[in-house]
């Protein structure tokens, strides 16, 4: 575990906590894309299936449980919570996210480390995570007023993968040259998608 990766995980955790705070404190999910939240839930479920089979560390297991339960809780709130669900911008959140799931799945079938169920699920989760933010970014561009918490949520979410890229660079020079092109390329695409958001976020 290096500082970049730890910073990345903490930034990721913080982004989820900011979103939970926004929904809990304001009892509103206006400006939040439910589709992006559903995609993240699929990402975590597909990637953290090894939660019960491979024990890596307490930290690793705890964080996996936190990410799975928090993403499920957010989706539940946006679908079932009587007050919150009313504030969901259904007609604004129109991105066809099924296309993203299908594309990521096809890519995972073609490009993976090994053609095994677990490796294909892992690659699927990496590809899907790279594009999962798209519905949210589209919603932000449509939405007139982006409230601070939602903006901060997206900012931390974009920053976390940038830290991971630094982590991969660090590991490349310290642990030898693993082939991690799936993570590399997806991480670059993922962070790149935030470029215009970061541009406007800092200009505002």
């Amino acid at each position: 575990m290096n500082a970049f990766r730890f910073l990345g995980d903490m930034t990721h955790l913080f982004s989820v906590l900011v979103l939970l705070l926004k929904i809990y404190a304001t009892k509103s999910c206006s400006g939040v894309s439910r589709k992006t939240q559903e995609l993240y839930m699929v990402v975590f479920l597909a990637r953290y299936m090894d939660l019960f089979t491979d024990y890596i560390s307490l930290y690793n297991s705890v964080m996996k449980v936190v990410f799975i339960t928090s993403s499920a809780a957010i989706v539940w709130c946006m679908r079932r919570h009587p007050q919150v669900r009313r504030t969901y911008d259904k007609e604004q959140d129109t991105f066809r996210h099924v296309v993203l799931v299908a594309a990521a799945f096809v890519l995972a079938l073609i490009f993976n480390e090994r053609f095994t169920f677990r490796e294909i699920c892992w690659a699927f989760s990496i590809y899907l995570e790279a594009v999962a933010i798209l519905p949210q970014l589209v919603l932000l561009q449509r939405g007139r007023n982006v409230d601070n918490l939602t903006g901060q949520y997206v900012f931390f979410l974009g920053a976390y993968r940038a830290f991971y890229i630094l982590n991969w660079i660090y590991r490349y020079f310290t642990e030898g040259h693993h082939s991690r092109w799936i993570s590399w390329l997806s991480g670059l695409v993922q962070t790149g998608l935030y470029a215009d958001f970061f541009y406007y976020y800092f200009l505002r």
Binding site: R5, D50, N60, K64, E113, W122, H178, R180, S183
Partner: peptide, 10 residues
């Protein structure tokens, strides 16, 4: 093998 490493990342 290479892919064992990245399973230690979240």
């Amino acid at each position: 093998e290479t892919s064992s490493y990245d399973k230690d990342e979240l």
